[in-house]
Write a protein that binds this DNA or RNA. Structure first.
Length: 433
RNA sequence: GCCGCUGUAGCUCAGUAGGUAGAGCACCCGGCUGUUAACCGGACGGUCGUCGGUUCAAAUCCGACCAGCGGCGCCA
């Protein structure tokens, strides 16, 4: 219906100066006076000021336009001019318009509480800041997948309704399933492991669900999990892939999303220094030098929020923490043959206090070793028969990792809470909208 | 799961020696302005989260409940 429609970005690029243009979108701001009305129109590509005058539109049409409210939808036609008085430097002088919907009061204006904005999240997603974040998020997800395709990985898809826990039973969401009970997936890892025996290098991006009653700035009950699993790869090699992947994602954001970074006030300089190689430290080293971070840690302590914040607060790039004590991680991690009390694993902590975004490492690939570790952890081998089978038939050394995609977006965008990194956050107390 | 906090007009909030509520913004009307989430005037707007208790009298004191927010633990 609209062959000749322009996007607002076409106007902002300067290519329509002195010409007729037709654009459509939503009223971002509107101000009127006796003789002029200023409509700042918004579309997916940006905002531009449009001015209508009583003189050229006529009394009736002028009133029709100037009485519109925020977020009403319309199309506007007029000539384009450069104008420094306009917010984005260009202006459309309105000769004609079509209103699609004249709104009642839009519920959102200035001075909105965090809580209210969450209640009207379905409308708040239209805001400039949120739109900018969504565009960056889109780039992050695209760049993540692109990286693995470029590296020869296969994208695969695993079930979200499952019968086995990956991280422990207490955090499972249970669902009725034809007279039985199933759980929502906490991680695709075990299924990814089954697929390396044919594809060798696999990755997936999928939601994960955890019924942890977490109340923090970096937990969601439903979050997006980027995971990979690779045959023949050790812990060191896995980390090298991950840092290259993070570097690639950050690079793409810097290349494509400068404007959006500026809208959300994220300093690009802080992202520009995300270059490989990242820092690497063993768990035991961190414990040994914990006074440097203002911490008093003893061997065997796990790192909590305060520890991660202190360690990463003044860092300029991410840090891999490796070789955790066996007791601190899940049963499937492979102990270091040189020192079986520590495992060949890594967490990647993002700088500026953001903390853990990746957990990964080598998997136990010996059957008896895996059985023994499962027993210690009270995991029922019957339930995991298929996972154990992988260690019976052509087992190979392999590694993998899981990345919190929403945490990655939170850090890259410099956000205060993970809830602002996803359109519809699911937390212990929020399931609407 | 643990600790803390909040709930008064559509929105943001003020309102305690207990005496049946106020401001700003939004909406509506009018004025003014090449405006920049402008300004001036007027009108509209509330069973003070719910239930119960104390009291002559409760937004205010007490109890229970509901909803949400912040922090910790757990993890990505």
């Amino acid at each position: 219906m609209t062959a000749g429609m322009d996007k607002i970005s076409d106007i902002l690029a300067g290519s329509r100066i002195g010409r007729e243009s037709e654009i459509r979108g939503w009223v971002y701001r509107i101000r009127g006076s006796a003789s002029k009305v200023f409509v700042i129109l918004r579309d997916s590509s940006g905002i531009v000021q449009c001015v209508g005058s009583r003189e050229s539109l006529g009394e009736e049409r002028f009133k029709e336009l100037s009485s519109l409210t925020i977020e009403s939808s319309l199309s506007l036609r007029g000539s384009v001019a450069k104008d420094d008085r306009a917010p984005t430097g260009f202006e459309l002088k309105i000769s004609d318009f079509t209103i699609y919907q004249r709104n009642d009061n839009f519920p959102i204006s200035k001075d909105m509480s965090e809580e209210f904005l969450l209640d009207v999240r379905h409308l708040w997603v239209r805001s400039r800041e949120f739109t900018a974040m969504l565009k960056i998020r889109s780039t992050v997800f695209n760049a993540f997948s692109e990286f693995f395709y470029n590296e020869g990985y296969y994208e695969v898809h695993t079930p979200m309704m499952v019968s086995t826990a990956t991280e422990g039973g207490s955090t499972l969401f249970k669902l009725p399933f034809f007279g039985e009970e199933v759980s929502l997936s906490q991680s695709s890892q075990f299924y990814l492991e089954t697929l390396i025996f044919s594809l060798e290098k696999v990755f997936t991006v999928a939601p994960s669900f955890r019924a942890e009653k977490s109340r923090t700035w970096r937990h969601l009950t439903e979050y997006w999990h980027g995971e990979a699993e690779v045959a023949w790869m050790n812990n060191e090699e896995m980390m090298a892939v991950e840092e290259k992947m993070i570097e690639h994602v950050v690079r793409r954001v810097l290349e494509e999303r400068q404007e959006e970074l500026s809208i959300i006030k994220r300093e690009p300089a802080k992202l520009e220094r995300i270059r490989t190689p990242f820092l690497r430290k063993k768990y035991s080293e961190i414990v040994k030098e914990s006074e440097i971070y203002g911490l008093k840690l003893k061997y065997g302590d796990d790192f909590g929020m305060e520890e991660e914040r202190s360690i990463t607060k003044s860092l300029e790039k991410p840090i891999f923490v490796t070789h955790y004590p066996v007791a601190l991680k899940s049963f499937y991690h492979r102990p270091d043959p040189e020192n079986p009390s520590e495992i060949l694993c890594h967490d990647l902590l993002a700088p500026e206090g953001y903390g853990e975004i990746i957990g990964g490492g080598e998997r136990i690939w010996d059957l008896e070793e895996l059985k023994a570790r499962m027993q210690e952890g009270n995991f029922d081998p019957e339930q995991y028969y298929w996972y154990l089978d992988l260690r019976k038939y052509g087992s190979v050394p392999h590694s993998g990792f899981g990345l919190g995609m929403d945490r990655l977006v939170t850090w890259i965008c410099g956000l205060q809470t993970i809830r602002d990194a996803i359109p519809y956050p699911r937390t212990i107390r929020r399931i609407k909208p």
